[in-house]
Amino acid sequence: MSQAITAAHTSAIDALHTAYVAALDQGDMAAWAATFAVADETSYFCISAENDRRGLPLALMYDDCRGRIDDRVSFVTKVWVGTYQPYRTRHFIQRLSCESAGNNQYRVTSGFMIMMTPEGGATTILTSGEYRDLIEIQGEGDNARAVFRERRTVYDADVLPRYIVFPF
């Protein structure tokens, strides 16, 4: 961990990670989107480790602007409803590094694991992976709040065990 980070910023980053996990584990897509900055230059990518390692740009989810993030919420909540077999997730994350990127921004890396429970089924591992984030602190002191400017989710599974509805 960088020495430069203040307790308030660490706390804000922790709260962001918690909010992200809570949103997805409750299937709350609006809350998921709310963990991202409202600025247009905000992105969420979810890409396989194989593509990432080989420098292949194709992703599983490629939301390279705020509009795309909002459109993903619309698709999950308005278009796909009633089509997919429901499943619940539990995300577990472990922060690996956090470095200042200037301008109240931090490069943060975390490991994650996602457990999945289909309705009526047993719990299995969906995938593990790494979050590579650019996190921005907005506000000062007690009002400091962290948001994602960029979250790059690199998942480990060379072959995913099922089709995917929710972001990782």
Partner: peptide
């Protein structure tokens, strides 16, 4: 890249529904 990533795969805007049907 962005259209391919988001349209036709196992999480694609169009084809997630296909995958569910399989």
């Amino acid at each position: 890249i962005r259209q391919s990533s988001n349209l036709l795969g196992p999480c694609g805007m169009v084809s997630m529904e296909d995958a569910a049907i399989f």
